[in-house]
Design a protein around this nucleic acid. Structure first.
Ligand code: FES
Ligand code: FES
Lengths: 151, 151
DNA sequence: CAGTATAGGACTGATTTTGTCGCAGTTCAA
DNA sequence: TTGAACTGCGACAAAATCAGTCCTATACTG
């Protein structure tokens, strides 16, 4: 349950890699795929998607590749996951498109929406930079959560 | 993404139903399935699973059915989801059974484990009773979270 | 015993996820 | 100007997971 798709995982790994190599002007999908041992073409698609939503800047051609469009500190895990896996909804029926047939009966959706918000809050409080410098993540996460809950 | 399986949804709905009908000594799977319009046999399996892990008590035979094994306030959404959807967590590679092949390279797992804990915390702070009396859920959730984070 | 209910294994079909292939466009540098 | 090394897509195939059904056994009630 509640598991991230591999694509999202790949995306986070790639962004982390980019954050760790700010010196390189741009890194190709293949480079990242090779170092992590993940399917190059699949990673390429993930990175293309991240580019499309504006988290990355791409550069075609020889010595081309990708670079972060903002500093790692300003890219949240939520954005990445949202871009790749789509809007995260804990309820099995996606409220967005088509409400499920048990809508009138199901009273579980509402309270679970709050849980959803909490989770989104946690994810928003984690930045790519936090993945690099893992130690700071816990503290920041707790801080953000408290303020989030008081709002 | 991050969506609950329908089974887990059904399980939560059923438990909520049971919490709302404490007067009835026991309720059959069919009763619940009918009121919510979900496949009876599927719900039956879910309830069987919940019985197996001790969240419900079952009673075969005529006028048989299920009842909560504890008060609704003491059954968390986490337990229900965990029982039905299994222990798999936000990291795509289940740490429990078999570590994925990119284990040595992937440095993302660790920080994400914290996120995982936070989410589990939220789920643990929601009880079946909170689903019934939805208004209180938000408050309790926030409270629990803050204490959780400070531990 | 007859009827109703849980218990659970096996199985099929639907849906989602994961990964591949092929081709078109872009950039760079020899 | 040619070709190698890239990104950008769309379609597709393979694999895994989920949802739902069926069938049989067992337990309890009256
Ligand atoms: S399961 Fe669809 S509205 Fe709750
Ligand atoms: S994806 Fe398996 S260890 Fe990170």
């Amino acid at each position: 349950m509640l598991r991230l798709t591999k694509k999202a995982d790949y995306g986070l790994m790639a962004l982390k890699y980019l954050a760790e190599h700010p010196d390189s002007v741009s890194v190709s999908a293949k480079d990242i795929a090779d170092t992590y041992g993940i399917p190059p073409q699949l990673l390429a698609k993930v990175l293309q998607r991240l580019t499309k939503v504006g988290l990355l800047r791409s550069h075609a051609g020889m010595n081309g590749g990708y670079e972060l469009s903002r500093e790692a500190r300003r890219i949240s895990a939520f954005e990445v996951i949202h871009a790749i896996d789509g809007p995260l909804f804990i309820t099995s029926c996606t409220k967005g498109s088509k409400s499920c047939d048990l809508e009138p009966n199901c009273t579980i959706k509402e309270p679970l929406a709050r849980v959803n918000e909490s989770i989104a809050g946690v994810l928003k409080s984690i930045s790519i930079y936090d993945l690099v410098d893992a130690e700071t993540a816990a503290g920041r996460s707790a801080e953000m959560l408290v303020t989030l809950m008081h709002s």
